[in-house]
Design a protein around this nucleic acid. Structure first.
Lengths: 140, 140
DNA sequence: ATAGTGCTTTACGTTTACGTCAACGTCAAG
DNA sequence: CTTGACGTTGACGTAAACGTAAAGCACTAT
């Protein structure tokens, strides 16, 4: 019940693995969320017996997943995207397919870029009008 | 059953109103979607008898809604944002509240801006690697 | 008068993205 | 050896964002 400095090790020896509780806290999501992403095939942590063991690779993926979510992509689409990064690009057909996918993604992202920029600009314009109104109130 | 050039008028006289079918098609959504937004209070078209009549104001709002959606905002949040634009900002307290909200929104949008830019950058880097791989295949 | 076209409400169904138990395993500490 | 602390697998619940009939009104054309 007192101060316990030995809470979050367990991977002190390996130095590169984490438990589900640790990654969940690190990314500020619940363990349920992490398991859900695994159910959908977005991450596949190592199993040591029955326990899940997360490596840096899994953390990288989790970061990509959460960023994708912030951008409003559905999880299924996020899966196809990050799978793309790990896809075997040995044969020419595969590489050309991957490059095609990249182009599609980029088109989508550039639309979102415009959306965000427009929204920020409109917000700025709106703020200016509000500050004008405020100025008039001060002036009187 | 033959060619019918008189399909989409009905507002020819007023020149500034549309039916639900027309706005739905214009924004490439279903009428169900449009009505759903109305149920949530995101738009409130005029009623002429029982029929909905959409004005430019409603189209503007629809545009904002759909852009908000592309950026991954939930509809409820979108409602509070676009309501903000139409809010009565007469009193100082109101104006200060609005300016606060604007700041919150901007912080959020700037995070998304970074997310999109990072994603595009990573995509570019990934494409470069793929093109390298492709070049090596050509070279052999 | 009737049929067709478009709009309306009501209401249940579906998908996505998890939340929330329940019930059980496991490992170290007391 | 029992008690936690943490982990595991189901399995059902839920909120958001619509989809999808079903059934009826209104106007127009034949």
């Amino acid at each position: 019940m007192t101060s316990d400095t030995s809470t979050t090790h367990r991977s002190s020896r390996t130095g590169e693995t984490w438990t589900i509780a640790q990654v969940a806290e690190a990314f500020d999501v619940t363990h349920r969320t992490v398991r859900h992403y695994e159910d959908l095939g977005l991450i596949s942590p190592e199993r040591r017996g029955t326990q899940r063991v997360y490596h840096r690779r899994d953390r990288t993926r989790l970061g990509l997943i959460l960023r994708g979510k912030r951008l409003g992509f559905p999880l299924e689409e996020i899966r196809t995207i990050i799978d793309l990064f790990d896809a075997p690009r040995g044969r020419r057909t595969q590489l050309e397919y991957v490059l095609d996918q990249i182009d599609e993604r980029r088109t989508d992202l550039e639309q979102r870029l415009r959306d965000v920029q427009d929204a920020i600009a409109e917000l700025g314009e709106f703020e200016r009008r509000c500050r004008d109104d405020l100025g008039r109130l001060d002036h009187v």
